Amino acid sequence: MQALFPYGLDAPPVVRNLALCSLACWLVFALSFTHWLPIIINGMQWPALSFGFGAFAMLWSSRYGKLRRREQLLDRLHWRGDEQVLDIGCGRGLLAVAAARRVPGGQVTGVDIWQHEDLSGNGAEAVAANAAREGVAQRVSTRTADMRELPFGDASVDAVVSSAAIHNIYNAEGRARAIDEIARVLRPGGQLLIDDIRHLPQYAARLRAAGFELALQRDARGLFWRLISIGRLAPGTLVGRKPLR
């Protein structure tokens, strides 16, 4: 599993459930050609294909897609090369390791509480292994910490990045606290990048109230997941900068 998904399988329970639903639909479809069912259910091949495609898409994204996307995301920030970077909900170091390659004179710290239902093999040791594999081990460190109570001083980092993490806080008040903490630890003029699958307008409203200049960007990928989730997901990316004063 680690060799196949060095940065983890995203949301393993979701992938499992999609695969099981697909198999169940295929089973009903196959049984419709026998006399074993008391009724005939037509059209089960379509939900079977939809569930199966969803599982395949998540597997592909975990193995290939998110590695490509992380570079596209980080390209949206302007790098000097000496920044102090904070990765919120770093998982297995997807953004942290990539950011470390862009700051040869800086340092990247990843924080997480390592929930395994969010990412397979989630843990600080996985971040260290990936950082070593990509040759940036000396510039990447981790802290076990809740994003709602970051263990860093005010205005102490130059850039904050986060990918598919803040939505895992299930109440709006908690998400607002996490956004406030991000705003607190960023230095004036510091950069922000939040890529997430839900609640982006809420994040944007909170940050704009704190004076941030922001752009909310959506693309075809977001439209795909919005359609396949019947509107439950609304992926996008917030890119912004903290005011100088």
Score class of each variant (00 low, 15 high):
30 A>K: 00
199 H>C: 15
103 V>I: 13
48 A>Q: 06
100 A>K: 02
64 Y>W: 15
212 F>I: 03
116 H>M: 04
16 R>K: 08
185 V>W: 10
51 F>Y: 14
141 S>C: 11
21 C>I: 02
30 A>M: 09
245 R>E: 12
36 W>F: 14
16 R>D: 01
117 E>K: 12
64 Y>A: 08
123 G>A: 03
181 E>C: 05
185 V>F: 11
8 G>V: 06
114 W>S: 09
107 Q>R: 15
135 G>A: 08
102 R>K: 14
173 E>V: 06
102 R>W: 09
182 I>S: 03
244 L>C: 00
188 P>H: 08
175 R>F: 11
149 E>H: 14
41 I>L: 15
15 V>P: 06
102 R>N: 06
83 E>Y: 12
34 T>M: 07
57 A>C: 11
219 D>N: 15
199 H>V: 03
58 M>S: 04
200 L>Y: 08
128 A>L: 09
209 A>F: 05
238 L>F: 07
227 L>H: 02
164 A>K: 05
176 A>C: 03
215 A>H: 11
57 A>F: 13
36 W>E: 02
244 L>F: 09
167 H>A: 07
38 P>G: 09
197 I>W: 14
11 A>H: 06
74 L>W: 05
25 C>R: 01
209 A>P: 00
6 P>N: 03
83 E>N: 05
146 D>G: 01
98 A>Y: 07
205 A>P: 00
154 D>S: 13
141 S>T: 14
58 M>D: 02
178 A>H: 04
95 L>P: 05
60 W>F: 15
234 A>Y: 10
112 D>V: 06
70 R>F: 06
204 A>S: 10
243 P>L: 09
123 G>M: 09
133 R>E: 12
49 L>G: 10
104 P>E: 06
150 L>R: 03
130 N>W: 14
191 Q>A: 12
168 N>Y: 06
87 D>G: 09
215 A>Q: 13
63 R>E: 08
115 Q>P: 05
